[in-house]
Amino acid sequence: MPQPILPPFTEASARAKVQAAEDAWNSCDPDRVALAYSEDSEWRNRDRFLRGRGEIRSFLREKWARESDYRLKKKLWSFTDNRIAVRFEYESRDTDGQWWRSHGNEMWEFDADGLMRRRYASINDHPIDQSERRL
């Protein structure tokens, strides 16, 4: 089991935290992804507000049930002692076969154990043709 990446962050550890998040989300495994969040984690995801690992896990199950061929890329934007900001882009296909590109920003705040206690995501979605995929 890899060592947890703990605050205070350096540029190298912030980049490693972002890469670990990207890898976990690309697994599309709600149980794996949920382990990165504190038991009482707070989320804003578009217009939804979630609290706690259980709600996060349920949200992710619903998400990946309707978003097929999901592929995500995250990039470090900024960091401080226990906060990281990222830009992201992902592509997926809905149940009707329409491809989508979603992009936006996330603000993360971590507890002393390296678990994310707050995640605020602003996301925009655009329909794309399969030929326009970048990821």
Rank of each mutant, 00 (worst) to 15 (best):
N105W: 11
W64E: 07
W99G: 03
D23E: 08
P2D: 06
I123T: 15
W99S: 02
K17L: 07
W43F: 15
W77C: 11
Y120W: 14
R15H: 08
R118Y: 09
D94Y: 11
D47K: 15
D47M: 10
L135D: 01
S102W: 00
D81P: 00
D47N: 13
K17A: 11
L35D: 09
N45G: 03
L6G: 01
C28N: 12
R48Q: 10
E132Y: 01
E55K: 12
N82H: 12
L135F: 09
M116G: 14
I56H: 10
P4W: 09
A20L: 12
M116I: 15
A121T: 13
W100L: 05
F59Q: 07
R118N: 14
W25M: 10
F79C: 01
H103N: 10
I5S: 07
R66D: 03
V18G: 05
P7I: 03
D23S: 05
Y90D: 09
A112K: 13
L6I: 06
R87N: 07
K73E: 02
Q19N: 09
R51D: 00
D29I: 10
T95F: 11
R83V: 02
P30H: 07
D31V: 10
L76P: 02
R134W: 08
S58K: 14
E106C: 13
M1W: 09
P4Y: 06
D47S: 14
M1R: 10
S68K: 11
S122Q: 14
Y37I: 00
S58E: 15
R44C: 09
A20H: 13
W99P: 03
I5P: 05
L35M: 12
E89Q: 12
A36F: 07
E106F: 12
W25I: 12
T10G: 07
G54H: 11
R83L: 00
A121F: 10
R53D: 04
A121L: 13
R57C: 07
K63W: 08
G54F: 00
A36Y: 06
F59V: 02
Q130M: 10
K74M: 14
S122H: 14
W43M: 12
P2E: 12
W77N: 03
E55F: 01
G54E: 15
P30K: 03
D31S: 05
G52H: 03
V18L: 02
H126V: 15
V18R: 08
R53N: 02
N124Y: 13
P4C: 04
R71M: 00
D113K: 07
I84V: 10
R53W: 05
W108A: 02
T95V: 14
D125I: 08
P7E: 02
L35T: 13
Y37M: 02
W25A: 11
L50K: 04
S41G: 13
K73A: 09
E91M: 02
S27T: 14
D129V: 00
D47H: 12
I128C: 05
F9A: 04
S41H: 11
L50E: 01
W108H: 12
I128H: 04
V86P: 00
R101T: 11
E62S: 13
L72S: 08
E22P: 05
R117F: 05
E11K: 11
S78D: 11
I123R: 15
F110Q: 06
L35V: 09
L72D: 07
G54C: 00
L6V: 05
R44D: 06
E106Q: 15
P127M: 09
E39D: 15
R32N: 00
M107D: 15
C28D: 03
G54M: 03
A121D: 08
F110N: 06
